[in-house]
Design a protein around this nucleic acid. Structure first.
Lengths: 337, 337
DNA sequence: GTGTCTATTGTAAGCGCTTTCAGAATATGT
DNA sequence: ACATATTCTGAAAGCGCTTACAATAGACAC
């Protein structure tokens, strides 16, 4: 039936073929120790002849390291996590580590999965709301290097995130400049630490400027449909808000749809803003906040590598800055001319 | 300085703690063989007490399998590959495999990287234009299960892809229905097998309908900026094409920009179409072709698992169907009412 | 009570590699 | 020519686990 798999050649066969011991083969290949050049030639010839590829498992077991690390994220459906992962993978590959990925969102028993991943890597990056703090501690305490991305610091772990607070303040101040007074926030702070910070910044900024924030956010999930649904509810009310500040771009795009359905014009009847600056935001004319996603991943990769190497670096926390992207959805800018 | 890493506890310590041999610990944990329940209790208690987690390396080496597989793609920047990877990871995780990822685009020595990945997995998925056919053969011949996605079949490997040909024909026929006659194709067939098929389908469809296809595609990379640049060139010509059929949505979005810059109205002065139906396409009003990206990845994951399990399945080739998404950019549809 | 089964556990042989330790062989110094 | 370095190589001990294979002990039938 199925041709049985050819058994891979091992270092022993290479050694036999070259007439040396396996130790010599190992040395010839690693290049770490001096091997007589004639011997090396013979070994390499044997390797070539037998198409030998050393077993990663054997190597890793002997060396005591995986030469791999992992990144855990909620999902990959929006551009946000995909970009972070890409930035991460790029640097990790450059530094010689293979990358394992794990999406937790909607999967049974994420904790188990993350702990399982921990058995296959030398270190890992944990993003956002994937596992509870207790699991982070458990992993870190077991001696595994961990870098947190887009989630609040836990214990002594390095943490890199984006300045949601300042970004949101900038956004809110811009909106106040348009003269708006009745704000609503669309998105669930419980969905991710990022959204939580954005909501907090939103409230704080409004309060500081003497504006009354809404008592509650309009909770909804991260996708277009949820945003649309949540926005419809808010826009139907008699005291309809003048601005919908949305937790991310997908939500905001949903809000734009909701406005269109209700026959409301954006930004005249209602202003709408997002967060992330996904590609669609540009075409939808959505005012939003751009964040350095690739850098987030790349920084995490570099830090993780240093931790794995055992660099005596103090705990690091970095907060990357965002950029306000003003487009049509937040109001006319004629006066700016 | 840096607190040294706690040495992980091994099966030996658990065995000592429980007063049994390591074999019994292994059996108690695997559950494959009967172990007296009193003994099992003691072992589990020891595992708990010492917080023992078996080494994946030890297990894999002894079992002779990695319980992991890999997926190789050009990059993750557009939504396309990200979605495929997500679909893949979801099913692979469900089937109990960890997932390693590898992006090749713009990296030095992709072949080396893919061969290195091959040492860490039980099987792998290769997407698009990542490595040459010779490398695919080399890996497959070495006995590693391989599934190809979005690239032409090589040897005996399972292959799953999208019907670029039929999809493009449908698109072209729709465009011909609008009465257009001068077509251009934006995108480089050398960039990916998908684009190559789309270009081929494009030419074939036009020829069949008695329409003269352009002699050359307007070659450009996969991003918005490249598309824009390529389109500007074409739209400036005296005999400007009536339609720009673009290799993917990013390219098409670039073309839309080009038209805007040149003061041309879409679709009145020039019609534009894309491929992929990314989120932005909807907001840009772009006519495009949707493909089942998640399914692509999920199918690959399932097939790969079956191959790894050694199922005596004949070689499989599946071509998934696409869906034409008509929006404003290809022309008015008043007559359809 | 003796013999045969069966359930349970231990012993030990790997899985494929790296690396220490020591020995052999060659080179260097006087 | 002899003592001392220096180079190179092999033997063997792991790395942490799984799994034949063997051994033990209690259960059961007669």
């Amino acid at each position: 039936m199925n041709r049985d798999r050819p058994k891979p050649v091992t270092i022993h066969e290479v050694a036999a073929h070259a007439g040396v011991s396996i130790a010599t083969v190992s040395r010839a290949l690693s290049g770490s120790v001096t091997v007589a050049s004639a011997t090396r030639e013979r070994v390499l010839a044997a390797v070539e002849a037998l198409r030998f590829r050393p077993s990663r498992l054997g190597q890793s077991l002997a060396e005591g390291r995986h030469a791999a690390n992992g990144i855990v994220f909620p999902d990959l459906s929006g551009p946000y996590y995909a970009e972070v992962v890409l930035g991460y993978e790029e640097i990790a590959a450059e530094l010689g580590s293979s990358v394992l990925i794990l999406a937790t969102h909607g999967r049974p028993d994420p904790t188990w999965r993350v702990l399982d991943l921990a058995r296959r890597v030398d270190g890992m990056v944990l993003m956002g709301r994937t596992v509870p703090d207790s699991v982070v501690s458990q992993i870190a305490d077991a001696g595994m290097p961990v870098v947190l991305v887009a989630r609040p610091a836990v214990g002594e772990s390095d943490t890199v995130s984006v300045d949601n607070d300042l970004g949101t303040r900038g956004l809110v101040e811009h909106l106040l400049g348009h003269g708006y007074e009745r704000f609503a926030f669309v998105g669930d702070p419980a969905e991710s630490p990022d959204v939580a910070s954005r909501y907090a910044g939103f409230r704080a900024a409004l309060l500081e400027k003497g504006c009354r924030p809404p008592s509650e956010p309009l909770r909804c999930a991260f996708d277009v449909a949820s945003g649309q649904q949540a926005a419809v509810g808010a826009l139907r009310r008699a005291d309809r808000p003048q601005v919908l500040v949305c937790g991310n771009d997908e939500t905001a795009l949903g809000a734009l749809e909701a406005a269109a359905e209700l026959g409301l014009s954006v930004p005249d009847d209602v202003a709408i803003t997002g967060w992330d600056d996904v590609m669609a935001a540009r075409y939808a004319g959505l005012t939003t906040v751009r964040q350095p996603m690739r850098t987030l991943g790349a920084t995490a990769a570099r830090w993780l590598q240093e931790r794995i190497a055992g660099a005596p670096v103090p705990v690091r926390r970095q907060v990357l800055q965002t950029q306000l992207i003003v487009r049509a959805s937040c109001g006319s800018h004629d006066h700016e001319q």
